[in-house]
C-alpha cells in the first residue's frame, strides 16, 4: 500500500495524522500495509450516581484499581447493601485479555511471531478476579452484566466503546474509563483492535488507486459519524474536534494507550480465552488449569496451521 499512498496527490496519508497506535500497527517489516479507520476498545462504564453514593473518592485519579474494587465491595457489605455489586462484566475474552495485559504486559515475543504467555501472571490475575468474585463483590453466575448495569445494580460495568449508544439509552449519567487496574501508578493500556483498510496484493490501475485513496481520504475527514456509532477514531483531525471530545470514549482515547493485537496468532489466543470464559470464577477450573489450558489449546491450534 506504500506506493499507492505515496502516489496520491490529493491527500497526504502521513502516519502522524493518525492515532499514535497506528505507527506500529499499520506497518509490517517496515512497510505500511493498511490505513486504520478506528479502534474499538475495551473499557469500564461507571454509574456516576452510584459511584458518588458508595465510593465518592474512587474516581479521583480516573483509575480504579483492584484494591479499590475490594475496598468498595467490603464497604457495601459493611453497610448491608446486598442488591448492588461493585462490578458487572461483559465478555470474558475482553475482560481477561485486558487484565492479562495489565498483569503480564505481553503475550508474544517482541517480533510478534512466538507465543510467550506468562502463566504466573495469568494465575495471579485470575486469583484477583476470583478473590473479588468469592467475596461477592462481582456479579453472580446467571446474571447478565449489561442488565445489572442498566437497572443500576452495578456501580461499574466493563464493556466496549461499541456499547456507548446502548448505555446512552439507560438514562443515567455515566463515564467511560479503563477497566480495573493492578496499580494506579502504572501506565494504563486498554485492550483494543483496529478496523483498517487493506488492499489485496495485485496491480492497480491509476483509476483504481485514485478511487481507493479518495475513499480512505473521505473516511479520514468524516470519521465523526463512525465515532458516534461507538468507536475511537484513527483520524487525528476528527479526534481533535469538539464533537469528538464530547463523546464518552474520548477520555479513554486521550488518557490511555491502546494495545493492539500484533501477534500473528492473536485470534487463536483470544478465541481460546473465550472458550474458557469465567470458569475459574465459577469454581469449575483453577487458575493454574486455566493458564495451562490457555497455552496448550492455543499452541495445538497454531501447530495445525
Amino acid at each position: 500500500m506504500d506506493d499507492m499512498l505515496a502516489a496520491c496527490e490529493t491527500f497526504d496519508f502521513a502516519i502522524d495524522k493518525y492515532h499514535d497506535a497506528c505507527a506500529t500497527l499499520n506497518y509490517y517489516n517496515g512497510k505500511r500495509y493498511c490505513v486504520s479507520l478506528d479502534f474499538p476498545t475495551w473499557g469500564m462504564y461507571v454509574n456516576l450516581a452510584l459511584a458518588e453514593q458508595y465510593c465518592p473518592d474512587v474516581l479521583d485519579d480516573d483509575i480504579v484499581t483492584w484494591d479499590e474494587i475490594k475496598a468498595v465491595g467490603a464497604s457495601l457489605k459493611e453497610q448491608g447493601v446486598e442488591d448492588i455489586s461493585v462490578l458487572a462484566c461483559g465478555r470474558p475474552r475482553n475482560d481477561l485479555l485486558n487484565s492479562y495485559l495489565d498483569f503480564a504486559g505481553t503475550y508474544a515475543s517482541q517480533d510478534g511471531t512466538t507465543l510467550a504467555l506468562d502463566k504466573e501472571a495469568t494465575v495471579e490475575m485470575l486469583g484477583v478476579w476470583k478473590e473479588c468474585y468469592d467475596a461477592g463483590y462481582l456479579w453472580e453466575e446467571g446474571d447478565d452484566g449489561a442488565t445489572s448495569f442498566a437497572v443500576e445494580e452495578a456501580i461499574f460495568y466493563t464493556g466496549g466503546t461499541w456499547n456507548v449508544n446502548a448505555i446512552n439509552e439507560y438514562g443515567f449519567e455515566y463515564r467511560f474509563i479503563a477497566p480495573p487496574q493492578k496499580d494506579a501508578d502504572d501506565d494504563v493500556t486498554v485492550f483494543g483492535a483496529s478496523h483498517a483498510f487493506m488492499t489485496p496484493v495485485r496491480a492497480y490501475t491509476q483509476e483504481e488507486q485514485e478511487a481507493i485513496t479518495a475513499f480512505m481520504h473521505y473516511f479520514y475527514e468524516h470519521s465523526i459519524d463512525w465515532a458516534q456509532a461507538g468507536s475511537i477514531v484513527a483520524s487525528k483531525e476528527t479526534a481533535q474536534s469538539e464533537a469528538y471530545q464530547a463523546l464518552p470514549q474520548a477520555f479513554v482515547a486521550n488518557a490511555y494507550s491502546i494495545a493492539n493485537p500484533d501477534y500473528t496468532y492473536a485470534q487463536i489466543l483470544f478465541d481460546v480465552v473465550d472458550g474458557l470464559g469465567w470458569e475459574v470464577l465459577y469454581g469449575r477450573m483453577t487458575p493454574e488449569e486455566f493458564a495451562q489450558a490457555w497455552e496448550k489449546q492455543t499452541l495445538e491450534k497454531i501447530e495445525a496451521q
Partner: peptide
C-alpha cells in the same frame, strides 16, 4: 450455552 460448564480439565483441555 456454547457447550456448557466445564466438568474437568485433562491435559490442559477442558
Amino acid at each position: 450455552n456454547g457447550g456448557g460448564p466445564t466438568l474437568e480439565v485433562v491435559n490442559g483441555i477442558n
